[in-house]
Design a protein around this nucleic acid. Sequence first.
RNA 1: GCCCGAGUGGUGGAAUGGUAGACACGACGGAUUCAAAAUCCGUUGCCCUCGCGGGCGUGCCGGUUCGAGUCCGGCCUCGGGUACCA
Length: 885
Amino acid sequence: MSRYSAAEIEAKWQEAWDKAGIFHAARSEDRPKYYVLEMFPYPSGRIHMGHVRNYTMGDVIARHKLATGHNVLHPMGWDAFGMPAENAAMASGGHPRDWTYGNIDDMRAQMKPLGLSIDWSREFATCDPEYYGQQQALFLDFLEKGLVYRKNAVVNWDPVDMTVLANEQVENGRGWRSGALVERRELTQWFFRISDFAEELLEALDTLDNWPAKVRLMQENWIGKSRGLQFSFARTDGGDPIEVYTTRPDTLMGASFIGISPDHPLAKELAEQNPEVAAFRAECARGGTTEEALETAEKLGFDTGLKVRHPLDPDWELPVYVANFILMDYGTGAIFGCPAHDQRDLDFARKYGLCVKAVFEEFGSYHDDAIPDSEFAGNPVFLKDLGPGPNGGSVLKKFFRITNTAFVPPKTETVRYVNGFAGQEHQTGEHAIDAAIDFCEANGVGQGVTNYRLRDWGLSRQRYWGCPIPVVHCEACGVVPERKENLPIALPDDVSFEVPGNPLDRHPTWRDCACPACGAPAQRETDTMDTFVDSSWYFARFTAPRANTPTDMAEAAYWMNVDQYIGGIEHAILHLLYSRFFARAMHICGHLPEKCKEPFDALFTQGMVTHAIYVTRDENDRPVYHFPEDVEVHESGARLGATGEDVEVVPSAKMSKSKKNVVDPVNIIRDYGADTARWFVLSDSPPERDVEWTAAGAEAAHKHLSRVWRIATGIAGANTDEAATPEADEALLREMHKTIHEVTGGLESFGFNAAIAKLYGFTATLARSEAGQDARRRAARTLAQLMAPMTPHLAEEVWSMLGGEGLVANAPWPEADPAMLIEDTITLPVQINGKRRAEISVPRDADKSEVEKSALAVDAVARMLDGAQPRKVIVVPGRIVNVVI
RNA sequence: GCCCGAGUGGUGGAAUGGUAGACACGACGGAUUCAAAAUCCGUUGCCCUCGCGGGCGUGCCGGUUCGAGUCCGGCCUCGGGUACCA
């Protein structure tokens, strides 16, 4: 072979790994275990560059851990239930099952050439009856432990197709197929009691040290713990009082109206008597159910004519509105509006001509060492902290004064003091809120309660292609759980998708069954489970994928937890929170050990792979998208290859089929090889950031790998030491140890791009080195080892041509000699007033005064000083010198 | 709307509060070649300057600091999530 041929090399080494069986995971006490997992793919049919990036990252970790003596578990499976399979069946006939398994076969075939170190013997799809049957067993256990229940909840209802729509199927408030205005409609559905775990899920976030802070913060905000006041407003007509929850009881004296949700029992009651209320409720029911749609919709209110009394002042009457922006799911479904201190309430008050009454006002901003004490005299005050300065610098704070003193908290002193005057606390008004709650409780007006934003998890889906919920509805016995020996309750095969809606609902025989309790004719539940359920425990199933119970406790105890989980940031909240809940629920039911309550020890969220979008317009000015391979890009612009038509280039968006801005990894692997694709997706961009695919980048990666191959071939074939010097040997080995150090550090901290940059540098050093044969062979073998996690095939080839023993995949990871990392002389920059003006060379262990002396002696510094003394000299050992003049 | 991120040369990006632009792409120049491809060597943030050298520079406006891409406050733009996309 005279040049780098990825095709030959890659097939050869994949076969060698297979034969050696080195990726097969089995329990063993002789090595520490390491479980690395990438979020499993949805089988759309084609792998995309995002998959390549995700699985390559996991593979780098897995291979590195294997080389450092770990017993590695690195499995792969398929998140196989979901809407696209049904959509495909509707669009082009066929069966969702055939479509899904066909896609899995295609994707597996596309994935295998990547050379991933996966234990394929553990593969499963969530649509395998063996998997979802165990999921049904979990459901029954959850049911028994009271972790599942039924209640009403709203869905998007398409009144033309008479079906439930997913949020994705609602476009601008209309059904995507029928175009009908979507309505919100209540259905009885199954729920997991995740909100019972709100506090635990919140508190445990603090233990997840190896999760990104942003993910923990997002989950914290999602759980949304708040402390507020729950109290009631008495109605002037003598009806039942209206129960209200507020997180801002400090603004109670600014109340101007009461708002209730259109789904509030009172609103329903009024609608029965008053057609106008009914009409308003119907208006509010239009549109989708997403929080975004509700929050951004125009704020609408309806004056019920009812009045309530202010709890602190019985003579003060407030109007009651039904308002579309109030959620029945949060708090009590009723609020009081304080327009002076809430933008949404202010908009509402202006629209409906309600009064605006301020409770407090800003009266100044001060640094914390400059607050005039007189400002506090007799005023209840709280403050807003504008942030501490660094290094103990002064803190700018804004001060507010309570102006409406109809209720003055008796603890004025406390309010003032705890609010940060003492310089310890920096929280906006929190203490004023606490004081208000204390005051209200002392006066018999409601009580302080803790509330969570987190809602229970609705798992019912009115769709075919999902895990059937294993219960039966019996006229006599009610809801009856299936017997475990009847599991799996398998989906029927004979279904059609010509009529909209759930085929299970109209299946002639599947639906009818005998009641497991009394044997009378009964009907199966036709709802299936949310696909998030499937992905909430697959990681545990991988530890014993063929067990005839959901998990095998011995296997789970050995392999769990997942040591490193890798996936997209888009899963930061739902998937990860549901999995955390499931792990707890499974523990309660005896399917996971206690230590698995937090199943993912470390989490890494990767960025997306993006590509420019190429657009032309049709005769109606609608966009027409084009694949990158159909477009010629020139400096002057882009044109369609076929017609020469000008193409508009929209920069960098997430790759998606509908925009056609996709690059097929299969083509890249065919043209350049898997190692090139792997090397490219790890190069340049930090893994947490989005990366743009460019053809030039892939080309460059391939050139580099060819170069490494050429250099290694040269070294393997050389047998003279023409220009060798001991100094060259020393220099090369020093660089080698530095490279080992930096690459190892990079791999252990997801600094793949930095590790690769270092490897570029080391390759150049090796190419130019005049070191002797032994040193060069050693350096090249080490290069192969360091590259092996990223480009495993090329690394094996280089390793073997240089006489490495066995497979490089199995070779112990090289260690850096600390003595080789330290230089005797270091170069320090010298700044004058913070601007770099010169450099000095000093011994590594020079003390501060020596460094200062040589810095002041430098020409540029002496010139600037002109004989004067510097005002200050800052020496940061090993870092920098700053001379202040 | 709300929550969470990101923004640095022509491009992708590097930089524990300490030399901004490592490494790579592209571009330009050179070597090699009959020629080309491939390969190798060099230059390359912007502006002023023959040069020496100087000025400006990390989305925008302020602040803290001897020193800010990095910390703080306020914005802008883009991206992710927003509970039935997965």
